[in-house]
Simulated scan of single mutants.
Amino acid sequence: MDIYIWITLMVVFFIMELVTASFFLVWFGVGSIVAIILNYLGFNPYIQFIGFAVSSFILILSTRKFAKKVTKKAGKNATAERLIGQKGVVLKKLNKTNVVIKVAGEEWSGYSEDDLNINDKVEVIGIDSIKLIVKKID
Rank of each mutant, 00 (worst) to 15 (best):
Y111C: 02
I7V: 15
Y111F: 15
E107N: 14
L132A: 13
S62M: 14
K121P: 00
T71K: 06
A104Y: 12
L38I: 06
D138H: 00
V99I: 15
G126R: 11
T20R: 08
K68C: 01
S112G: 01
W108H: 13
I15W: 01
F23G: 04
G85A: 00
N95A: 09
F43I: 03
E106V: 12
I125K: 13
Y4Q: 09
A104D: 15
L41T: 10
Y111E: 07
V89A: 00
N117S: 10
P45E: 04
T8I: 12
S56K: 06
S112K: 08
I58R: 03
E81V: 03
N44E: 07
K87A: 05
E123K: 15
M16V: 14
A78Q: 02
V30H: 02
I15H: 03
V12E: 04
I58G: 05
K73I: 03
L41Q: 08
I5M: 11
I125N: 01
E17C: 02
F52I: 06
I130Q: 13
K136W: 04
K96W: 09
Y4P: 01
L9E: 08
R82N: 09
V89D: 00
R82K: 14
A67W: 04
S112P: 00
I133M: 05
I137C: 15
A35S: 13
V100E: 04
E107R: 08
E123S: 13
L94W: 01
A53T: 10
A21M: 14
Q48L: 07
Y46R: 00
L38K: 06
S55C: 12
L59Y: 10
G51W: 12
V124A: 14
I130H: 12
L83A: 03
S109Q: 10
K93S: 11
D120N: 14
W108A: 04
F24G: 03
K135S: 14
E113Y: 14
E113R: 14
D115H: 12
V99Q: 14
K96V: 13
S22L: 01
I60W: 07
I3M: 12
I36D: 04
N77F: 00
F52R: 11
G105Q: 02
G29P: 03
E107T: 10
A74M: 03
R64G: 01
I36R: 02
K65T: 05
A67G: 05
V122L: 10
A80L: 04
M1N: 10
G110R: 07
S55N: 11
F24M: 01
M16F: 15
Q86R: 13
E81Q: 08
N119Q: 12
V26A: 07
T97K: 09
A53V: 11
V70R: 13
I133P: 00
